[in-house]
């Protein structure tokens, strides 16, 4: 498995790394038990609503650190509206790609940037706290990467059905029992959804 030179450069010499004093907003996503955690800090120019300054901290592997570095490069100087469109795919492209098994590490940094922006908007009365719904679940599932090919499980049509009622999440997942990555995907689904207090139970059905 090989990393691109860009990944190695950003890993060895990350841009915008370090804790920010008095940020306008910040967010921390991931957890040490999953092996990675990223914090993103933002300073926002209130006149033109652009990201004036951004920095990150990362507990994670090389691709986690490199993605966090590139995502801060991509967001810096952008308007909040434009920064909201930055995804893990953009980060991956800017890094000249990642090995498929490492793509999942790129999702967290992009995700943390979006949460930081959302936290800023909520704190400044620019938007309401979003309601938890089936769409929230679907959005989370789009962040779960099937490690063998480095694509998310929704794009790969592995998610056949999503239901949500009374705190009960129901997911039909088209992954066979002999698939060596099934357990990883199931664990990730739990990690992504259990952080919502609205989720009381997750049931995953297989073919």
């Amino acid at each position: 498995m090989q990393y691109s030179q860009k990944v190695l450069d950003h890993f060895m010499h990350p841009h915008n790394v370090g804790k920010m004093e008095n940020p306008d907003a910040s967010a921390t996503e991931g957890s040490p038990s999953c092996g990675d955690q990223v914090t993103v800090y933002l300073k926002v120019n209130k006149d033109d609503m652009t990201i004036e300054d951004i920095s990150f901290l990362s507990y994670g592997c090389a691709s986690n650190i490199a993605t966090a570095s590139i995502i801060t490069d991509l967001a810096k100087g952008k308007s909040l509206e434009d920064a909201k469109k930055i995804t893990w795919r953009d980060a991956m492209e800017a890094l000249d790609g990642l090995p498929p098994v490492k793509v999942h590490c790129s999702v967290l940094a992009a995700d943390t940037l979006q949460t930081a922006i959302s936290n800023y908007e909520i704190a400044n009365g620019l938007k309401e706290v979003p309601n938890f719904s089936k769409d929230t679940i679907l959005d989370e599932l789009k962040k779960i990467i099937y490690p063998q090919v480095g694509e998310d499980i929704v794009s790969l049509k592995m998610v056949k059905y999503v239901g949500f009622s009374d705190g009960e999440v129901l997911i039909d997942l088209n992954i066979m029992s002999f698939d060596t990555w099934r357990e990883n995907v199931v664990e990730e689904i739990h990690e992504h959804l259990e952080k919502y207090p609205e989720v009381k139970n997750i049931q995953i059905n297989f073919p």
């Binding site: 060895m12 994670g60 592997c61 090389a62 986690n64 650190i65 490492k102 999942h104």
Partner: peptide, 30 residues
């Protein structure tokens, strides 16, 4: 407080080969 794949790769840049138990460096991500 830090992760083994990153440590391993940085040591490798100095020509030092070691192993880690990090999930990120394992084939099965465990």
């Amino acid at each position: 407080y830090i992760e083994g794949e990153a440590i391993t790769m940085m040591l490798d840049m100095h020509g030092i080969t070691v192993a880690t138990g990090s999930a990120c460096a394992s084939q099965g991500l465990k």
